[in-house]
Design a protein around this nucleic acid. Structure first.
Lengths: 246, 246
DNA sequence: CCTAAATGTCTATTGATATAGACAACCATA
DNA sequence: TATGGTTGTCTATATCAATAGACATTTAGG
């Protein structure tokens, strides 16, 4: 199903090998090659995309660099990793529960924390005075030891003093909130956009440059509707999809 | 706010001028240059991104091609268009209502229609027997004469015979359903992913190659929960954001 | 154990991408 | 009207991206 085979585009500022790498990565995630566990031969792919075999080789080399495939002389190009995590977005969205059994091991790392005055945008979202102190956490989430998202999240400092340590110890926002006396919270809005990966994305999420990033900006409130957290999370688009159930 | 200034990346398969074009486009949509209505001078941008002025010029030429900016010798590079449409995704998601007053004129074009047997994936989603006949519509939606989405949508043929004509005349799914006796329908699930634009996207949505596409796969049912429509819609990521309100 | 089917390596050539520098043309404004 | 700031154009050079062809090397299977 899905949209039909379209050809690659030239002179667009995106190298052919990168377009082809993206397409093959998507096909792998889509399960197109599950029957064989291998990517089609270089000759076949070259004909399929209408390019030279060497161009396909560049694409496969990039995917090998990402650890998605492994080429073996005489045998073919074997698929090493094949995944696309699904994140349900609901009124009770939780990172770790959302992954569910799609991954065995889940992990939340605190990269950095700071206190700072709220910007105009942030104060409006959290409904606090402009310039009021907020705690900012930079976090990295992993599933089965592979990074799946990079987040910047803000909390009102007066209410959630010490959340840096709570998160650092637990690796979970839900648990950190609970440690500070907030037993439940609700997702009230999520904005989803997409962009190219920036330098920090490439490093933290272990992507190859030119990758696409899904950006989710989320606002959580306590059960009374008072904003408790605003978060901007960045996910590799070829590893993740969001599902909104109404 | 938002993520900090990161530099462009070399030898990634994505040309520098394209990365810079994407960044400037995003800054425009973000309102960063609202004070002057102009993009900063080429020299300044070149210094900012750490590249040669000519590289910046290539980026600006691409944006001019898209109609986003217009360079005037002696004056600077003026911003011509600055928009990012917001699409709320709710249980009652409707394209035209969703845009609301963000655009004055809305339009739905029927590009192509066909009848075909349902694939395995489609039959599961619409809960009809595999191979049962479905009607497929290829549509293009515009707001203020600019294309904002390209959709492929499927309907069970037995229940919605003649929907091609109904849509073609009305330019609205909601109205077409009503003409065929379905007065209301509900959005039950939406899957959101992102990918690079393909050839058809570039042509229909009038994008420059390498652009990013947000893909929404949506299932609508009648009030009794019986699936009536499955749609795959593609939106230019730099023009659109989705908002999920819970 | 030979052969077909793969991937690996090498050389050569062309066009796109990026840098560098210089100068022309144009506009707003002091 | 002179000047500073800005975009437009030109030449030159180096590197990356893509094509082309030939041949080596490895693996699986008859």
């Amino acid at each position: 199903m899905d949209t039909g085979q379209t050809n690659v585009h030239r002179q667009n500022g995106v190298a052919l090998w990168r377009q082809i790498a993206d397409r093959i990565r998507a096909s792998i995630a889509n399960g197109d090659y599950d029957a064989t566990g291998k990517v089609p031969p270089e000759f076949t792919l070259a004909a399929q995309f209408g390019v030279n075999r060497h161009t396909v080789r560049s694409a496969l080399a990039a995917l090998a660099q990402e650890g998605i495939v492994r080429s073996v002389q005489g045998r073919g190009t074997l698929i090493e990793r094949k995944e696309r995590l699904n994140f349900p977005i609901t009124r009770r969205t939780r990172f770790s529960e959302g992954i569910g059994d799609q991954a065995r091991e889940k992990e939340g790392l605190l990269l950095h924390s700071a206190q700072e005055p709220a910007s105009a945008d942030l104060s409006a979202r959290l409904r606090i005075p402009e310039g009021a102190t907020v705690i900012r956490l930079e976090t990295l989430r992993k599933a089965d030891h592979r990074p799946v998202s990079r987040s910047t999240t803000w909390f009102p400092a007066d209410r959630f003093d010490g959340i840096e340590e709570a998160y650092s110890k637990s690796g979970s926002i839900t648990v950190a909130f609970r440690m500070l006396g907030l037993s439940d919270y609700l997702r009230v809005s999520t904005e989803v956009t997409a962009t190219h990966a920036d330098g920090a994305d490439l490093a933290d999420l272990q992507l190859s440059p030119g990758a696409i990033i899904l950006v989710a900006r989320a606002l959580n409130t306590d059960p009374d509707g008072v904003p408790v957290q605003y978060a901007v999370s960045r996910f590799p688009a070829d590893m993740v999809q969001f599902t909104i159930e109404n």
